[in-house]
């Protein structure tokens, strides 16, 4: 067995993470993540549903995911690609179908964001990638609800306070926490509301 190239055949699926320091040719399917220091070739008929971080990328098949190619990315005429693409050299042949954002500039920032998929502002990309994203996605929805309910909650808490004072310490300890949380959410609402509008 001499040096064999790595091939994922047309009848093979991988779900999970593929890492390596050699060329990888995909004729089948990979779901998950691909991290290579060399060339990734997605052949015609192949499907990749994965975040991709490679040196060179050649796509002739279907690729869905966030893409970072540190040297070049080529979409041939049969390519079908959806996802943000960061690479200093991007080649798109006539016939290639692509939807997403192309960034030929800051590859390091894009690479940091591959895991999180949340690149809304420069501050976001400076932070470690994986953690900040989920709260960011979750906050606006919650903030809107909190903003709506903040006033009634405060009234209810104020009404509850005298009763709590009478009934004792455990009940007294919990109600003040409620308006404080609602207040914190409420304070965040304008920033997020503005952001949402700006994005649209």
């Amino acid at each position: 067995m001499a040096d064999k190239e790595t091939v994922i055949g047309p009848e093979t699926q991988i779900s999970g993470e593929v890492r390596g320091e050699e060329d990888l040719i995909v004729r089948g399917r990979i779901d998950g993540k691909v991290h290579l220091t060399q060339t990734l070739t997605v052949e015609k008929g192949a499907t990749l549903q994965a975040d991709v971080d490679v040196r060179h990328l050649v796509v002739s098949g279907t690729l869905v995911g966030t893409i970072v190619a540190s040297e070049s990315a080529k979409l041939t005429s049969t390519a079908r690609v959806v996802g943000d693409l960061a690479s200093p050299r991007v080649i798109m042949d006539a016939g290639a179908a692509y939807r997403g954002r192309v960034d030929m500039g800051d590859i390091a920032a894009a690479r940091a964001a591959v895991g999180s998929r949340a690149v809304q502002r420069p501050a976001a990309s400076e932070k470690p990638a994986i953690r900040p994203a989920p709260p960011r996605m979750a906050t606006p929805a919650r903030a809107v609800i909190a903003g709506k309910t903040a006033a009634p909650a405060a009234v209810a808490a104020a009404a509850a306070r005298p009763m709590a004072a009478v009934s004792g310490t455990p009940a007294f300890a919990s109600p003040p926490a409620f308006p404080r949380v609602a207040g914190a959410m409420g304070a965040m609402t304008p920033a997020w509301a503005k952001k949402k509008i700006r994005r649209r």
Partner: peptide, 21 residues
């Protein structure tokens, strides 16, 4: 060459399913 080959520097973490060698 219709087979699947995982080369010597490749690490796969997950599941591989297939109908070929």
């Amino acid at each position: 060459m219709a087979n699947t080959v995982i080369g010597s520097s490749i690490v796969v973490d997950g599941e591989i399913t297939g109908e070929e060698p």
